[in-house]
């Protein structure tokens, strides 16, 4: 559940969306059960195989031109910082049975006809 209701999305003036649209213009079509299962299977495999951030990286429009040398140097530096950060996280020992991150709870049935 998003913290802003769907109808409360930002509507830039240049957007093709109408203010107050129930669904943003880029929203996908409702997912069929077959499509959902295909996605689920693909998602499970991807989660096992690929770094989590990779989809975001793939989905991102690549910078148009090669970055200037100074920017590239800073990017390398920031990547090294991420590596150092991950080293600290990976080195930390969480005991078996440490608490889970979030509380998962099944959602009860909604009212008939509600979204």
């Amino acid at each position: 559940m998003s913290r802003t209701r769907v109808r409360k999305r930002a509507v830039p003036r240049a957007s093709t969306g109408r203010a107050g649209d129930a669904r943003p213009p880029e929203a996908p079509a409702p997912t069929s059960r077959r499509r959902f299962l295909r996605l689920l299977a693909a998602g499970s495999a991807a989660a096992l195989a690929a770094p989590l951030a990779a989809p975001a990286a793939r989905g991102a429009a690549a910078p148009e031109r090669a970055a200037p040398a100074s920017v590239q140097a800073e990017i390398r530096k920031q990547k090294r910082q991420v590596t150092a950060t991950l080293k600290a996280i990976r080195a930390f020992t969480l005991p078996v049975g440490s608490p889970q991150a979030g509380t998962f709870a099944p959602l009860g049935p909604g009212r008939r006809g509600s979204r």
Binding site: P51, A53, A56, P63, E74
Partner: peptide, 13 residues
């Protein structure tokens, strides 16, 4: 100038 590269910078996570 580094904002566009954040997915790439964090891709190792």
């Amino acid at each position: 100038p580094y904002a566009p590269y954040q997915p790439e910078i964090n891709a190792e996570v």
